[in-house]
Amino acid sequence: MNFATLDLNLLRVLDALFREGSTVRAGARLGISQSAVSNALNRLRHALNDDLLIRHGNRLVPTAYAETIRHDLAEQLDGLAQLLQAPATFDPATAEGNFKIAASDFFAEMLMPALADLLHGRAPGIRAQLVDLVPQNYIESLERSSADLVLIPDAPLPKFVSRQDLFRSPFAAIARQGNPHIEGLKQGDVFPLDLFCRLPHVLFSPEGNTKAMGDAALAKVGRTRTVAITVPVFSGVCRAVSESDLIALIPRQLVERLGDHYRLSWFEPPMPIDPPLIIGAWHRRDERTPQHRWLRSAVFSILAKLDPDLALAQRDGMKMS
């Protein structure tokens, strides 16, 4: 391939095809016709001597070679766009736009009310949207710009994704106030292991899984539990527990916020469970975008209050570096 004669606009088309998996959607993304996209793809196939994308059902999937250049291409194009972009000023008071956060409904309680108040007072033209987090697709949602920020348990991330540690989320066992099985237990006590394993559980699982971190922790002490129902949202877990004799494990920060509303009591789990680290992740193309930087800083400052020790350790680490 002679790079000197390559039309660089073809690379924008290839990037759009990688992101959309369709000549129609790629054309819509770029504002050109489907036939123009197909023509560009054919030219690239000839120039790079590879099929690049192969039809699989109703979607185009990358070849092995194309997969090796996919993320680097997106990163290089985004970097070039930032390089050529005129310096931008950002004034929250006059800014307008949307900011989509993909996360569980935990954040509907623990983030969005405070964020709404902050935006109302400082950036009234910006709309924050909490959208459902699809566990298997959050990386794709960042690639396709269907989310600006994802809030997830710590996980390996591709190099085109930036991240920040936010807080640790310890678990609590919950039961409704008045549940006859917890008579004699005081809030904050350790839940008896035999009782914990005997009572049926409500499990939070967007995918409908019947096992989670609690089961892995129980297995380490040689025990199991019975999951009676699964629900895809934490509010559903709280509701189910509040209206039955079932119990559940949920983030302690959440039950401390909602326990009185749902008339729930919370207890320490009977087995050790490492509290998961929750992180914020975003596409590196937005690393230096002024509006994105301001908004994610606003989100992170709110969530830092959930784990003051981690926030303090991060500040100390920044001072030392």
Score class of each variant (00 low, 15 high):
residue 9 N to G: 15
residue 19 R to Q: 12
residue 21 G to M: 08
residue 33 S to I: 07
residue 35 S to H: 09
residue 40 A to Q: 07
residue 44 L to C: 15
residue 48 L to I: 10
residue 49 N to E: 15
residue 50 D to M: 05
residue 53 L to H: 03
residue 57 G to I: 05
residue 63 T to L: 08
residue 69 I to P: 10
residue 72 D to G: 03
residue 74 A to M: 13
residue 77 L to Y: 06
residue 88 A to Q: 00
residue 92 P to W: 00
residue 102 A to L: 05
residue 105 D to S: 06
residue 108 A to S: 10
residue 111 L to D: 03
residue 113 P to G: 01
residue 121 G to H: 14
residue 126 I to L: 06
residue 137 N to D: 14
residue 143 E to P: 00
residue 155 A to F: 06
residue 157 L to N: 06
residue 178 G to W: 08
residue 179 N to R: 03
residue 179 N to P: 04
residue 184 G to C: 02
residue 197 C to M: 04
residue 199 L to H: 02
residue 201 H to I: 00
residue 204 F to S: 13
residue 205 S to T: 11
residue 206 P to C: 09
residue 208 G to Q: 07
residue 210 T to N: 10
residue 210 T to S: 11
residue 214 G to T: 07
residue 216 A to Q: 14
residue 216 A to F: 13
residue 225 R to F: 01
residue 228 A to K: 14
residue 229 I to V: 15
residue 232 P to N: 02
residue 235 S to K: 11
residue 244 S to P: 02
residue 246 L to H: 01
residue 263 R to K: 14
residue 265 S to N: 10
residue 265 S to F: 07
residue 265 S to E: 14
residue 266 W to F: 13
residue 271 M to Q: 14
residue 276 P to K: 10
residue 278 I to T: 12
residue 280 G to F: 06
residue 281 A to Y: 02
residue 282 W to M: 10
residue 284 R to N: 13
residue 290 P to C: 03
residue 296 R to Y: 00
residue 297 S to C: 03
residue 300 F to T: 07
residue 301 S to C: 05
residue 306 L to K: 07
residue 312 L to T: 08
residue 316 D to Q: 13
residue 319 K to C: 01
